[in-house]
């Protein structure tokens, strides 16, 4: 399972990458492998304000629907439109090409309360 060091992680298997007050968000390798072939990604609109735990959109595989939850409070300032026509990117490139949204964080210190890669790895082991 690929768990890059530099990212933050949630218990719902989202990742967040902090870039000066912004957080890029996607779903983890574990999440995509559990879902299987992703066939549809429906993301919230740019400009939407979200609280931590609010839905950023849905990811659908052949078998299941999964919500993507916001790791922090903030505003969606960018949405990955490539996923509309190429949802399979989530399976092939979940940490780079298949980022989902960029959030402008209300409180950048919220990020440090998320799991780091080591804690997420331990969390996955405990879940299994």
């Amino acid at each position: 399972m690929n768990i890059p060091d530099e990212l933050y992680y949630t218990e719902n298997h989202e990742w967040g990458k902090v870039e000066d007050g912004l957080m890029r968000v996607g779903i983890t390798d574990y999440a995509q492998s559990e879902l299987g072939d992703i066939v549809f990604v429906d993301l919230a609109r740019k400009g939407t304000s979200v609280s931590k735990g609010d839905s950023l959109g849905t990811v659908e595989s052949v078998k299941a629907v999964s919500e993507v939850y916001s790791p922090v409070d903030g505003e969606i300032v960018e949405v990955n439109e490539a996923l509309e026509n190429s949802p399979e990117l989530v399976n092939h490139d979940c940490y780079e090409g298949a980022w989902m949204v960029v959030l402008k964080m209300d409180d950048p210190s919220q990020a440090s309360k998320l799991m780091d890669s080591q804690s997420y790895e331990d969390y996955l082991k405990a879940e299994a």
């Binding site: 072939d37 066939v39 595989s61 399976n91």
Partner: peptide, 20 residues
């Protein structure tokens, strides 16, 4: 294979991927 419970049976739901 990814194995799931299907009415009490441990069955493969996919190997490489459903679409493939």
């Amino acid at each position: 294979a990814k194995i799931v419970d299907f009415h009490g049976w441990e069955m493969p739901v996919w190997y490489a991927g459903i679409i493939e």
